[in-house]
């Protein structure tokens, strides 16, 4: 996965996830605090620069990660610019009063929030984020589902990929009807694997006398305090900038 590759290979891999989470949270607050589209754009631009220059993510990789979300944003924002006039005869679609202003306002806010999200996910691997959620006292059962889900999704992805290739080699996806049939077979097989793998995991856990939470070694970050202070100051600056320019 593109985002996970960046999260493991960026310059800020060794920076505490708590600090990166704090800065991203400040980014979200700044974006929602920004009263004008210009301010929101400025905050989004700063978050982008921090991700590119600070964490060393290449622009190409950033844009590839952002492309699907940007497409959805363009489609979603466009729908805000138009209004439906339910007249006497039939409904008419036309440019809404202040439609373009709404489009720009929501579009820039969403762009800024996306920049804050991308800063977090492109610099922090998911295992570190799960450890961060544990330190924030997220319910243990929810964390267990997350840990198991993360560990199993690569196993299932490989199984799907191999089954898909085998079915494709036998023209299983040659038409829409065959596609539905092949997908049904693939998903049914995968559903059976869910039970088999869950049962195997349960037996493995029982064999180790596990009757409590699942614990894994977590990375140790030496400068968490310093990192959080720097992130706090930078994040506060971002919020002050958003309020000051409002």
């Amino acid at each position: 996965m593109l985002i996970e590759q960046s999260a493991y290979s960026n310059r800020w891999r060794s920076v505490s996830p708590a600090a990166k989470g704090l800065f991203a949270a400040c980014g979200f607050v700044a974006i929602f605090a920004a009263k004008s589209p210009l301010t929101a754009t400025l905050v989004a631009g700063l978050l982008l620069l921090v991700t590119l220059i600070g964490a060393g993510i290449t622009l190409g990789r950033y844009l590839r990660a952002a492309a699907p979300a940007l497409f959805f944003l363009a489609m979603g924002s466009l729908s805000l610019a138009f209004a439906v006039d339910v007249g006497d005869n039939r409904p008419l679609l036309h440019l809404a009063p202040n439609g373009l202003a709404k489009l720009v306002e929501v579009g820039t806010r969403s762009l800024g929030a996306l920049a804050a999200l991308l800063f977090l996910v492109l610099t922090t691997p998911l295992v570190d984020l799960i450890a961060l959620l544990r330190s924030l006292r997220t319910p243990e059962l929810l964390l267990e589902i997350m840990v198991l889900c993360y560990r199993m999704l690569f196993v299932f992805s490989a199984a799907v990929h191999e089954t898909w290739n085998a079915q494709s080699a036998r023209l299983g996806y040659a038409s829409a009807r065959l596609t539905i049939r092949s997908l049904g077979g693939l998903t049914a097989n995968l559903t059976l694997q869910v039970w088999q793998r869950a049962h195997a995991l349960h037996l493995a856990a029982q064999a180790r006398n596990n009757d409590g939470p699942l614990r894994f070694l977590e990375a140790n970050f030496a400068n968490t305090g310093r990192d959080c202070r720097v992130a706090g100051v930078a994040g506060a600056g971002l919020i002050a900038l958003a309020w000051g320019l409002a």
């Binding site: 198991l148 992805s157 995968l190 869910v194």
Partner: peptide, 30 residues
Amino acid sequence: KKRIDEQPEQRMLLGVAAAFSFVLSALKLP
């Protein structure tokens, strides 16, 4: 939690089911 207390094997099933749902959402449907 109540279900897991009665059937401990369900604990693993839910995590595996979440991975299954995630992978399922990546499948392309005509």
